[in-house]
Amino acid sequence: MTINVVQAAILGLCACLSSMPGLGGTTFGNYTLGRPLIGGLVCGLVLGNVPMGIMLGAAVQIVYIALVTPGGTVSADVRSISYIGIPLAMLYVSSVGLDPAAAEAQGFAVSMAATVGTVGTVLFYGTATINLIWQHMGLEWVKKGQLKKLYLVDMVLPWISHILCSFIPTFIMCYFGSNMVQLIKDYLPMDGLAMKTLFTVGSLLPAVGVAILLKQVVSKPVDFLTFFFGFTLCACMHLNLIGCAIVGGFFAIINYNIRCLALRPAAATAAIGAGDDDEEDI
């Protein structure tokens, strides 16, 4: 399997659309094209092996299932994970002749994606920094009353940032991917220290994503009990996430009703008073 110019260009375009401040919009770009599972489908279609793309993409998706970017802080760059990491992993897996369903193949895909995803955060900050130029120009234009140019600033000029920070890096990495994969194979044996560390980092990284989410929702120490409640449901009682969400939803409703009762002390007291009257009547 090799990647030709056209294939590398398509992957580069997907990288432009999918990155976190991406040109596909957040819903279709970041949260659809940027997810490794979807990236696996796209890479599989582009490179002509859909089952392999999906299998490797799914393995990577597990690591990044809780990947969020609250407050503009990123722990991993989705364009690099999905459109550099997965294609390179596919090249590697097919060149070594591994079965994509095997643990070795999926492990390699995960560590490859984790590596480029972590290094790729540079691309995220690069894009955001170049966008500053357009925004400063845009603010000047708005002050002068050239309002239509807002569209230029918001939807056209960022393409320049993305060509520099998404298209070109992805294109180069994918186009010369076979060479790089060969280098990795030659210099980094999988049972060596570097690869073992990479795999381990791959399994530790999702903890950062979840911790970022946790930072958003935990406001007092007792909230950790809620967190461990959900954790226990899945870890000890082996519920799946839908089951966990239903139990959580039930408790959320109870919590809401209790809070609403507390909001109406006067009405609640009156109701109790009325109840007492009824008893006296009997």
Partner: peptide, 29 residues
Amino acid sequence: EKANAIRDSIIMLGTMVIGGVTASWINIT
């Protein structure tokens, strides 16, 4: 106040599912 109650309840649900996500999808051994 009512919105706060709704928000806190939703966040409670979210916190539980985040706990579930940790148990289901993070595998550190």
